[in-house]
Design a protein around this nucleic acid. Sequence first.
DNA 1: GTAATAGTACTCGGATAGTAAGTGTCCGAGTTAACCGGG
DNA 2: CCCGGTTAACTCGGACACTTACTATCCGAGTACTATTAC
Lengths: 179, 179
Amino acid sequence: MALYGASVEYAAHVLVTLASAPAGSAPSASDLAEYQKLPVAYVRKLMTQLEKAGLVSGREGIRGGWSLAMPAEEMTLLAIAEAVESQARLFLCRNVRARCVMWSDDNPPSAAVAGICEIHAAMLAAEAASRRELSKRTLAEIVRGIRAKSSRDFEVRSQAWFMDRVGRRRQSHSSQEQP
Amino acid sequence: MALYGASVEYAAHVLVTLASAPAGSAPSASDLAEYQKLPVAYVRKLMTQLEKAGLVSGREGIRGGWSLAMPAEEMTLLAIAEAVESQARLFLCRNVRARCVMWSDDNPPSAAVAGICEIHAAMLAAEAASRRELSKRTLAEIVRGIRAKSSRDFEVRSQAWFMDRVGRRRQSHSSQEQP
DNA sequence: GTAATAGTACTCGGATAGTAAGTGTCCGAGTTAACCGGG
DNA sequence: CCCGGTTAACTCGGACACTTACTATCCGAGTACTATTAC
């Protein structure tokens, strides 16, 4: 139905959140997921995919969490999409042309089917066009666009939310429980 | 995995075949399918979809068959793709932005989420680019490209194959059986 | 005071369901044209 | 000679099974930091 599924959408929003989070806060996968009510376990898996692609770097352990592995200006939407859905192709040529009945009986499909199928070629051109478009958009641009729309109050409260999560994480095992 | 699946590939090749078939031969869905060893029943379904989209016109009955409903010069690859996979989108926005925890407790997501999501906008731009590319390519161009690669002999034999199919269809119930 | 231990909150990776869409098949119904036999 | 019935070969449309990939969840294992405890 759609080439890029929920994975790409989740990943993109998570990265936007990560780029907007307070500097050095290193939110955990749970933080990032719950902030936008995404399935936590699923986001966890996405994070490891993003890490493999070199977009984020994680730190393990009790104070662990995620942070961008490169400046947001350099991270393109194409890179994000390919990180979590590397197999996404506009079209997969099954080489129908070579199945023609003309070939089967006597002479094999040699010269006539040489090179790339015309239809496949057109599809590849279209795919290249869409990728070119996606590679133009960077995470930084997207964050700027979102920030321009949102209120200052929203930003402040979001930052506070993340700081609260991090703080809560730390104090939770100095004092065992809290009201 | 791929936005455009086998349906689009089959449809495209069938239309190429149809455009290349002898004038007035009106091949049946079976003819078109067997010519390239495609699943017959499936091609039949595709043909009705292509008809609904106005790309081909069918004639029922014993001498029935299919023919292009418009000049091949006017039929774009985009039209073909959309005829059989109209739901194909590059990206389906689930409006994740509106699920943010910041909204749930007191104030609803009003102004900040107004307009289209930044990520969605970028995806739409990419989709538009690929569609633009596909709408540039016409069936006539594709047929020309294929014809340029194939031998004259291949063409002649293909035409003969179709004429044989049509002829066989007619004589098969003047003389009941044939050797 | 320093070192070993326990506990906490993460990440990591694989195994496993559930679900939706594409792919492919089958069957009955309707349509057109040719042929065949009766008037 | 003409006309209605029969048959053949299509199209049309819906119903159904199969496969695959995405989405989502769960669990055991590893890791880093902190606090506690023992020496």
